[in-house]
Amino acid sequence: MSIESRLAELGLTLPDVAAPVAAYQPAVRSGRYVYTAGQLPFVDGALPTTGKVGAGDGLVDPADATELAGICALNALAAVHSVAGTLEGARIVKVTGFVASDPSFTGQPAVLNGASELLGTIFGDAGTHARSAVGVAVLPLDAPVEVELIVELAD
């Protein structure tokens, strides 16, 4: 099954690539690899929520942050598609995720599962990847999560 067919089956479409908020490109191709910039969970050009992830009043619920990580991954795939022209035959090599966290929050890996599991669902075995999940004090625009990818393209 093609990646486009798989996305449609899952009810997903690649969004428009978010315009950079500083001096960088959303994705750069080098040979068979595409490296994405960190992608925020923009939906229709806006962040659905902002703030730190954790448990308690005024914090982003970890389950919501997990969903946002999946949105980040979909945005990163759109960036890959924008420079590669296709996702067919692609393999996800590395996912790096950043979670703006309350100091007591240690569930960053679970939050990043939102990205990892979505990529596995879309790509199957080609979505299995290495990953880093990093807690940080703050992210651009006060986003709760940010995801970047390294993707190997087919010959």
Results as ranks from 00 to 15, higher is better:
152 E>P: 03
87 L>I: 10
73 A>F: 01
19 A>T: 12
100 A>C: 01
8 A>E: 15
152 E>S: 11
137 A>N: 11
79 A>S: 07
112 L>A: 02
92 I>V: 11
59 L>V: 11
64 D>M: 05
111 V>K: 08
141 L>S: 10
94 K>Q: 08
14 L>E: 08
53 V>N: 14
105 F>M: 06
62 P>T: 15
75 N>I: 01
134 V>H: 03
38 G>V: 03
146 E>W: 02
44 D>K: 13
132 S>M: 07
137 A>D: 15
145 V>E: 12
15 P>Y: 07
104 S>T: 12
129 H>M: 13
51 G>A: 08
9 E>I: 03
2 S>K: 05
142 D>Y: 12
77 L>I: 02
141 L>T: 05
45 G>K: 13
80 V>R: 07
133 A>T: 02
127 G>Y: 02
137 A>V: 10
29 R>T: 07
6 R>N: 04
81 H>I: 00
52 K>S: 10
135 G>T: 07
39 Q>M: 04
2 S>W: 01
153 L>A: 12
129 H>V: 00
5 S>H: 02
126 A>L: 09
14 L>W: 07
49 T>Y: 08
121 T>H: 04
48 P>T: 13
110 A>T: 14
70 G>V: 12
14 L>R: 09
134 V>M: 10
119 L>Y: 00
16 D>N: 09
119 L>T: 07
46 A>P: 01
140 P>Y: 08
105 F>S: 04
80 V>K: 09
150 I>M: 12
120 G>K: 14
111 V>R: 10
3 I>F: 02
69 A>D: 06
86 T>V: 01
106 T>Y: 05
77 L>W: 07
53 V>T: 15
6 R>L: 01
136 V>D: 05
104 S>R: 11
94 K>C: 00
112 L>D: 01
14 L>A: 02
114 G>K: 06
55 A>Y: 14
124 G>L: 08
48 P>L: 15
68 L>P: 01
48 P>K: 15
137 A>P: 02
113 N>I: 00
86 T>K: 04
72 C>T: 05
54 G>P: 09
32 R>T: 10
126 A>C: 04
103 P>S: 10
30 S>C: 01
80 V>C: 06
33 Y>L: 13
89 G>R: 10
155 D>K: 15
101 S>Q: 12
125 D>G: 07
98 F>T: 01
61 D>R: 15
21 V>L: 12
143 A>M: 14
18 A>Q: 13
49 T>R: 11
35 Y>R: 11
149 L>W: 07
42 F>N: 07
55 A>R: 14
74 L>E: 03
46 A>G: 03
69 A>T: 09
35 Y>W: 08
106 T>S: 13
64 D>G: 00
61 D>P: 07
85 G>W: 03
143 A>V: 13
39 Q>F: 00
118 L>E: 05
77 L>F: 03
79 A>T: 04
132 S>Y: 07
49 T>M: 15
